[in-house]
Computed example of a mutant assay.
Amino acid sequence: MGNTWFGVAACVDQASIGVVEKWGRFYGLAPPGLHFFNPLAGECLAGVLSTRVRSLDVRIETKTKDNVFVQLLCSIQYRVIKENADDAFYELHNPKEQIQAYVFDVVRALVPRLTIDELFEQKGEVAKSVLDELEKVMGAYGYSIEHILLVDIIPDAAVRRAMNEINAAQKLQLASVYKGEAEKVLLVKKAEAEAEAKYLGGIGVAKQRQAITDGLRENILNFSHKVEGTSAREVMDLIMVTQYFDTIKDLGNSSKNTTVFIPHGPGHVRDISEQIRNGMMEAASGQAP
């Protein structure tokens, strides 16, 4: 519904306030409802102001401390103060232009002190500074500033591309660091695993050789006790020849093996037994105190 008045009567809608004049001078405020005036006494309803919250979007272009041109979109919510509606009616002809001018002034004084990164981080402080300044100024004209929101910060397109490239390069650098650390860990773990495998393999070989040595010693002792007149060397030669022929037999039974034969014969077995015997004697002499 709109506000209506007919000479001696007027109806002021809810969320509105009427301004009453008498002989051209401010006489009083008319709250929502039906009001009667005396035209003979010079009374009339000069105008009606809405007390609803209004919104004003202001787009500002300015430059930051690091010479980056940006556009800022501010949204200002304001309303008429009912008690001071006469100031709002008589003092300002165009409140939107007044608010916009003060927003331009405050933002262009504050933003050049900040870098582009600081502006993004401190946009709440920028909005608060604009709010504080507008409250002091517009309050004297009968307007209350409810909220100010810094809705958007839009750098130049070239600056946005550069910022995205910088961010991408930093992410790639960080990814390379993490990848290098991961590869380092894998190499270290692999080296530790190889060292552990070689260590365990060495222990296994040592135990195997110890078991072979113990078995040969036991066989030699048993054979010497059971067959009188045989020496340990003869028994050792017999065991080596037996193992030699067992190996030849195994190679012959396996058709899938690829085998390289070298000159060999029973005489070579004796030479091998001599080498083994000498090695065992040298090891035993080395352990002797």
Rank of each mutant, 00 (worst) to 15 (best):
V19N: 07
Y90I: 05
A85H: 02
S50P: 02
V68F: 07
M1C: 03
V48K: 08
L200Y: 12
L119D: 13
V106A: 15
D214W: 01
I154M: 11
G201S: 13
P263F: 01
L73P: 10
G139A: 15
P39I: 04
G265F: 02
D13E: 13
G229Q: 09
Q122T: 07
D237Q: 11
G124M: 10
K249S: 10
L187W: 05
V151N: 13
V260T: 04
T259K: 00
V53G: 00
E135A: 12
A109N: 15
S55D: 07
C11V: 12
K190D: 05
L45H: 11
R209L: 13
Q71V: 02
Q71G: 08
I153Q: 13
E282Y: 08
A191R: 07
N253S: 10
E91S: 14
L149I: 14
G180D: 06
A288T: 07
K184F: 14
D66Q: 04
A195R: 12
D250N: 10
I212H: 12
I220P: 00
A193T: 06
K123R: 15
S273G: 05
M281D: 01
E21C: 02
Q77I: 04
W5D: 14
V227A: 04
T259P: 00
G124I: 08
A9H: 06
T64Q: 10
E118Y: 03
K128T: 03
T247I: 13
L200S: 02
V241S: 10
P289I: 10
L200R: 11
A9Q: 11
L172T: 04
R160S: 05
